[in-house]
């Protein structure tokens, strides 16, 4: 791709709300109404969500929150988006006990005894969303960004 073309692609393009909601509904069972009142934009492979109804004509670096990455299959939800939208999820949830939650928060992998579709899951402890995990063959791999992890010694 020529540099000029990649620059053209590197802009925020409006996205249809139902297109975004459909992906979250099919993976996590989140109802479409959880996405009402927001606007969605795509920039390169990232999808952004913002509550503002009107945006002044400016050059933007970020529009609200980056909620998902479409680069790989399956698409990947961000931890910060799951912490907001995950409370509406009805499937592909993993509830951890205290020991497991500590392991997850340290950024490590942990075995879980559950029947899930492989892929990204909402990880909860005491009904609170901790973040995003990647589930496959009985193992959940913590997807917490490094700066959001607990250090093991504390």
């Amino acid at each position: 791709m020529s540099p000029s073309l990649s620059r053209i692609r590197n802009v925020f393009e409006p996205m249809n709300s139902s297109e975004v909601a459909g992906l979250w509904q099919s993976r996590f069972g989140i109802p479409e109404k959880a996405f009402a009142g927001y606007r969605f934009f795509r920039k390169a492979q990232s999808v952004w969500m913002i509550s503002a109804s009107e945006l002044p004509n400016l050059s933007y670096e970020a529009l609200g929150m980056r909620i998902m990455n479409l680069k790989d299959r399956p698409w990947k939800p961000t931890t910060c988006a799951l912490q907001i939208l995950g409370k509406h999820a009805t499937k592909n949830l993993v509830h951890l006990n205290e020991t497991q939650a500590t392991t997850f928060l340290e950024g490590k992998s942990l075995p879980v005894d559950t029947n899930l579709e492989p892929g990204y899951v909402v990880v909860l402890y005491r009904e609170e969303v901790l973040g995003c995990g990647l589930y496959s063959r009985g193992i959940v791999v913590s997807q917490l960004p490094k700066e959001r992890r607990m250090t093991s010694c504390s």
């Binding site: 969500m49 503002a52 400016l58 670096e61 970020a62 609200g64 910060c80 912490q83 907001i84 700066e147």
Partner: peptide, 29 residues
Amino acid sequence: VTPLRSNCERLGVLNVAITRYDGRNFPRG
């Protein structure tokens, strides 16, 4: 911009748009 974005995301902020102008010449509004 990195810590600004990271704080907005961690705190669940959804009504912030980030721009990168020289504040003295912010174009319009």
